[in-house]
Design a protein around this nucleic acid. Structure first.
Length: 502
RNA sequence: GGUCCCGUGGCCGAGCGGCUAGGCAGAGCUCUGCAAAAGCUUCUACAGCGGUUCGAAUCCGCUCGGGACCUCCA
């Protein structure tokens, strides 16, 4: 039986607020779109959590055998700074500040973003389209909406007519907002505002003379509105209706709500089957965000160069830390929590190394009870991941498995107590969930062959010293290595292993 | 003000009506020349007050406290 059929996936659909069984639109395939970063600044840790969440989701679908097309955009234009007439987009503003070409900014921060993704072992998406690469499509869908009477042009700008849309469809299905309340509350309509209602939003914005990023359009020179790029890029690469759309909670309204309205208005059908929103990373209970000034840069975290940090933490340890909570919960970020995570991660990582070395020794006395326990652990990995991608519970199972792996290493359990099949499946599951599903790898330093050889020479010397009962020397070798970050561990039969502290 | 979420043991964090989450820290033990690692044991909580139920951390109500969205944010 294929894994896909054996282990169904249940996920919480933000659209219904309920946990639903995932049924792909096309057998064995998953189309997923996630709102990517706005590349006008360095990504901070909070951003990273969202991309990690969807990395895990894509990985797990693939692990089960689904063919996944994962589209994650780069927003390199279009986020309006304000609703005012002189609205300019963020990239352009930043460019003027730094006296650079907008595309220079975009390039610089896109590179930074990719570097951070690599460090966290977040796999690249299948397609990474940029907003500036899809101006033509954005213009064309805007025209389509005007033709349908759902958008109107004023002074070279085009706005989406929410009220009109709401007569045919339902604006607010995602966020649960009511159009009447939205029209009453909130900011006052500016006297010179071109919008008919304050809930209307821009599809196309006229560029002021000083605006740097601009493209010709049927309405004059301008640039696209904030929400339209995602509608264009998601439907272009995934179809008018696709399986999953993800993003951070803070995008739910208005961004995702507007996406639904645009796509539904243009194509006559809702664009997304399952909406998934990941929750925020918090610091002392408050949302981590640039504007609040409490954000951490990944680089600061790795180096420990930050007022709130006592030391640096490896990307893997941070990744593990984030996976210990469910994506839909807020996760509070603190020194203590990171330290705990670092140690826990090391435990799993050590067991991973061990798991790769264990060998089955032939069946003599299969212990049905023990074997069943191992099979139970194996299937629990799938059941927990299938339950709304619950990485926290999956990790709990992995810790149990790590204990059993250590039992096998120390001799508390014997490989011959299992059938070769159960033994292999168990180890493969542990390794597979660690590396492929959760993206947790052994510490990279241990893959350095030269270092490995050098340490082994020292281990040889220490063995000799111990045989000669020259403990002063053997301790010195161990202590000096410890000083430079290499921890030696004596095993049974005089064998030694080592680990590297980052 | 409107909409919504959360409050779990020393800390972090699962949990979706009955059954041990898990990690870290602490304590004890085993192994060890000494360490480290590993194993075993231990510490057993659900903000408060009511209610529903045979049974509630889990459902309902109220109170207190924290937070998110409603303006750009993952």
């Amino acid at each position: 039986m294929a894994l896909i059929d054996q282990y169904p996936i249940y996920l919480t659909n933000s659209l219904t607020g309920k946990k639903e069984q995932f049924q792909p639109l096309h057998q064995g395939q998953v189309g997923m779109y996630v709102c990517g970063p706005t590349v006008y600044n360095k990504v901070h840790l909070g951003n990273t959590r969202t991309f990690l969440t969807f990395d895990i989701i894509a990985r797990y679908f693939r692990f089960l055998g689904y063919k996944v097309r994962y589209v994650r955009n780069i927003t390199d234009v279009g986020h309006l700074e304000s609703d005012a007439d002189d609205g300019e987009d963020k990239i352009a503003k930043k460019a003027r500040l730094e006296q650079l070409e907008p595309m220079e900014i975009v390039k610089q921060y896109t590179e930074d973003f990719h570097e951070v993704m690599r460090q966290f072992n977040i796999l690249p998406p299948s397609i990474e389209p940029s907003a500036t690469g899809h101006i033509v499509e954005q213009i064309s869908i805007t025209e389509k909406l005007i033709k349908k009477g759902l958008a109107y042009e004023v002074n070279g700008s085009v706005y989406f007519d929410v009220k009109k849309y709401n007569q045919q469809f339902h604006y607010g299905i995602l966020s649960g907002r009511k159009i009447e309340e939205l029209m009453e509350s909130g900011r006052e309509l500016d006297s010179q505002d071109e919008k008919r209602e304050k809930i209307d939003f821009a599809l196309w914005k006229k560029a002021s003379p000083s605006h740097i990023m601009r493209w010709p359009s049927p309405w004059g020179e301008g640039f696209p509105g904030w929400h339209i790029e995602c509608t264009v890029m998601s439907t272009k690469y995934l179809g008018e209706t696709f399986d999953i759309h993800g993003g951070g909670m803070d995008l739910k309204f208005p961004h995702h709500e507007c996406e639904i309205a645009q796509a539904t208005g243009a194509n006559g059908q809702p664009p997304v089957k399952y909406w998934i929103h990941s929750n925020m990373l918090t610091v002392n209970g408050q949302k981590m965000s640039k504007s609040l000034g409490n954000s951490f840069l990944p680089a600061e975290l790795f180096s420990g160069n930050h007022a709130l940090l006592e030391k640096g933490y490896s990307p893997s340890a941070v990744r593990f830390f984030m996976l210990q909570s469910h994506y839909s919960s807020t996760l509070d970020f603190s020194n203590e929590a990171l330290q705990a995570a670092e140690k826990g991660y090391k435990k799993l990582s050590n067991a991973l190394k061990t798991a790769k070395q264990l060998k089955h020794t032939g069946t003599k006395t299969v212990n049905a009870e023990v074997e069943q326990e191992f099979q139970r652990l194996t299937s629990e990995c799938y059941l927990n991941m299938g339950d709304d991608f619950n990485t926290a519970r999956t990790l709990a199972v992995l810790f149990e498995m790590a204990s059993r792996i250590n039992d096998l290493k120390s001799g508390n359990l014997q490989p011959h107590q299992f059938s070769a099949e159960a033994f292999d499946t168990f180890l493969k599951t542990y390794i597979g969930f660690m590396e492929d599903v959760l993206g947790l790898q052994e510490e990279a330093a241990q893959n350095d062959q030269l270092l490995n050889d050098v340490v082994n020479v020292l281990i040889g010397l220490r063995k000799k010293a111990r045989q000669d009962r020259n403990y002063a020397l053997s301790d010195k070798i161990r202590d000096d290595l410890k000083q430079v970050g290499v921890q030696l561990m004596d095993g049974k039969d005089g064998e030694m292993s080592y680990s590297i502290d980052s």
